[in-house]
Amino acid sequence: MSVRHSLLALLAHCPSTPSNLQGAFHEATNHEWKLNMGQVTQTLARLERDGLVAQSGSTLTPTGHEAIEYSLTDRGIEEVQQWWASPVLRPDSERDELVMKVSLAFACGDVDLIGLLDTQRQAVLQQLREVTKLSRNLPHTLSTDRLMAERRVFDLEADVRFLDRAEALLNESRKA
């Protein structure tokens, strides 16, 4: 998750204090991800250092304390516009534990690889059932909860397809 770009996106709407940014982030993401105040203030300090935000004034908080407001600079506006226009690409995983486990089981030769794949498949299918059950209670509208559930379903389905493909590759290797 890009805290940096999330804060820039929120500041694109209006100047804000760190506390208000934290609250707006939680509200926008339906509290799916926690963003602590330390992350907010450290990120704002870096954004200010990089010339993407600037202090634009101060305001009194409900507790009577003075809080600094931040706003985007021209460079900050350009940065957030570039972020909106750029795709989010999945990074290549340097170490995928499941791929590593299957590869090692095959290389060792004394591991029941079909049993390992079946055990993994059963666990993934159980997770898939749980997510599907939970998602039945979610409204069928665009919300963070719905998007997270749908993403998890697709990721788990991809894991099942991967396990099926690994088994097919194993069977092809045995025939060769």
Rank of each mutant, 00 (worst) to 15 (best):
A54W: 05
E97A: 08
G57T: 09
R174S: 04
H31F: 07
A28K: 14
N20M: 07
L104I: 05
W84P: 01
A176K: 11
A45Q: 15
S103F: 12
D164W: 07
S19M: 13
V124L: 07
A105I: 05
L163T: 02
T41D: 03
G51R: 14
G38S: 04
V131I: 13
L35N: 00
N36G: 07
E94G: 15
H140G: 01
E94W: 14
L134P: 00
T144R: 09
E48G: 05
K34M: 04
F106A: 11
W33T: 06
D50I: 11
V153D: 01
L11N: 03
F154S: 10
L128W: 09
L98R: 15
R121T: 12
L89R: 05
L35S: 03
L170C: 10
L52F: 08
V40K: 03
T61R: 14
T141E: 10
S86V: 06
L142A: 11
Q22S: 04
Q39D: 06
L169G: 07
L138P: 00
V99Y: 14
K133T: 12
H31T: 04
R146N: 06
H31E: 01
S93Y: 11
A9E: 00
A28F: 08
S173D: 09
D74H: 15
S135F: 14
F25V: 02
L134C: 04
E130A: 15
A166N: 03
L125A: 13
L156W: 13
R151N: 10
T73G: 10
